[in-house]
């Protein structure tokens, strides 16, 4: 394998890309629009987010925490007559306390989508920057930065969360700090690895010889060239974050009962897998649909952002 592979392609793509920085976005959008799967996913995600956030204004959505214990575990599309008085219609059935599953899923989606996207952005930002800087600067800085990552991996996360919740109580910022603190580590390792390998390539050396600043090199050349891996790993981080949120809520951090999130609904469903499978199936369907569209959108974005793709 040639270690200097691009001998025959003289023009390094990088300077060229800097100049048409603004049109890159527009090009990408054009390419994305041609990708039907990605566009469907985008619309689905938008619809999902809108539904979950505009929930309080939507009619016909039941109170997610109203219990009718005598109407528990009803199937989808049933109407139950509670001894409490009202007759209740369940579109996706009722849970173990006679609450409306559909409504709980939508309300849970609000929590999960917020946590999923915000905490992922936190870990994405920290992870990419940290990894890129460590890889690009190299030497002792890199060694020190990566040992910090190792230490953070090894510390007993459970205890840290227990201590923080005891001293600060159940607060939203703490949830993001705790999730962000664990989820960026692997991202940093991956990005650093990619940057270490990229920075020996010609176009980076060319950019350096052109006198480009370090920040410009990192942001304009190194990060864009690892964008494929970053997008893929980001879409993998979202489900991990949503699941972590459910674990943290058991430690008293984050959403507390009777409120639900997708993670906690799936956990409840897993425990009742035999007796009441719909408690597992419906929340999982919403969770899976969201993740699928997120991933297809991610793949589409990756293709769209890559200028070389169109040549294929």
């Amino acid at each position: 394998m040639p270690s200097t592979p691009t001998a025959s392609t003289p023009a390094p793509p990088a300077p060229d890309r800097v100049e048409k920085g603004t049109s890159l976005g527009r090009d990408a959008w054009h390419r994305l629009r041609k990708n039907k799967l990605a566009m469907c996913s985008l619309w689905f995600l938008l619809a999902m987010v809108l539904t979950c956030y505009l929930l309080p204004f939507l009619p016909l959505i039941a109170d997610p925490n109203k219990t009718y214990p005598d109407l528990k575990s009803l199937g989808p599309f049933t109407t139950g007559e509670s001894v409490k008085g009202p007759s209740v219609f369940y579109s996706l059935g009722s849970d173990y306390l006679g609450r409306d599953i559909f409504s709980r899923i939508l309300h849970g989606g609000r929590v999960s989508l917020t946590v999923g996207f915000l905490a992922t952005s936190v870990s994405l930002t920290i992870g990419v920057l940290y990894g890129a800087i460590a890889g690009f600067v190299g030497g002792r800085t890199d060694a020190a930065m990566m040992r910090v990552v190792d230490i953070l991996y090894a510390l007993p996360f459970l205890i840290i969360v227990i201590i923080l919740t005891t001293y600060f109580g159940n607060q939203l910022w703490l949830l993001f700090v705790c999730i962000g603190a664990v989820e960026w580590l692997t991202m940093a390792r991956i990005v650093r690895g990619q940057v270490l390998s990229l920075k020996k390539q010609e176009f980076i050396e060319a950019a350096q010889s052109l006198g480009l600043g370090n920040a410009a090199i990192i942001f304009r050349h190194l990060i864009p060239n690892t964008v494929g891996t970053i997008i893929v790993y980001t879409t993998l981080t979202v489900p991990a974050v949503m699941r972590l949120e459910a674990i943290l809520s058991f430690l008293g951090l984050g959403v507390q009962p009777p409120h639900a999130s997708w993670g906690s609904l799936i956990k409840e469903g897993a425990d009742r897998m035999i007796s009441d499978p719909s408690l597992l199936v419906f929340p999982s369907l919403f969770f899976a649909a969201t993740l699928f569209s997120l991933n297809f959108l991610g793949d589409g974005l990756r293709d769209a952002l890559d200028p070389k793709t169109s040549k294929d």
């Binding site: 925490n65 109203k66 219990t67 214990p69 409490k84 173990y96 306390l97 227990i162 919740t165 005891t166 159940n170 809520s249 058991f250 430690l251 008293g252 507390q256 009962p257 009777p258």
Partner: peptide, 30 residues
Amino acid sequence: HKAIAEAVQDMWKTHLGITRVSISNQEWKV
């Protein structure tokens, strides 16, 4: 414990109108 607490919370809400009672999960030793 969670299910019982959720049911009781809703009973207090229905029969007494108490809205500001929150359930909080805590780790065993905490």
